[in-house]
């Protein structure tokens, strides 16, 4: 399906993938009583969080992310992915994402999916903030001629 004006968008795959992501978060919530927040689980898995999630749970959740992606590629072939042109973007982005998600107590999954669906004011504010700041960052990079595509 193509959205008029946005020929590159993949709304059907996006919606289907989103439903699965919601299902995954629902399994964690209703099954184990916890938030499927990737940044928190990742910090816990590498020993950088005092968080209450038992270590095996965090490690298996994080490992499952890669396992699920591997299963997808086995069934459907390679995933399309275009990365920034040099490692510097990845290092800078990674450092800031790691610091910021811990400082802000969550990322797209914890605040965006789990918190917003719970109508948590904290998560609504966090999500609006990081989407806004992400959009501003891309606009500034593009204006400086540093965009990659």
């Amino acid at each position: 399906m193509i959205i008029p004006g946005f020929p590159g968008a993949a709304p059907v795959e996006g919606l289907a993938g989103g439903l699965l992501i919601g299902l995954a978060a629902a399994i964690m919530l209703l099954g184990a009583g916890r938030i499927a927040g990737v940044s928190g689980m990742a910090a816990r898995a590498v020993g950088l969080s005092k968080g209450g999630t038992p270590w095996p749970m965090a490690a298996l959740f994080v490992g499952g992310l890669a396992l699920g992606a591997a299963l997808f590629t086995m069934l459907n072939g390679p995933v399309e992915a275009t990365y920034p042109p040099s490692a510097g973007w990845l290092v800078a982005g990674g450092l800031i994402v790691g610091f910021g998600t811990r400082m802000g107590s969550g990322c797209t999954s914890g605040h965006g999916v789990c918190g917003m669906s719970r109508l948590s004011p904290r998560s609504l504010l966090a999500t609006i903030t990081f989407i806004g700041s992400g959009m501003a960052t891309v606009a500034i990079i593009n204006a400086l001629g540093g965009g990659w595509s």
Partner: peptide, 20 residues
Amino acid sequence: LISGSVLFGIGWGIAGLCPG
């Protein structure tokens, strides 16, 4: 909450990647 989310968004915009 606010500063951390601002930073996260900056890193997200730089690399096109979030943790998941």
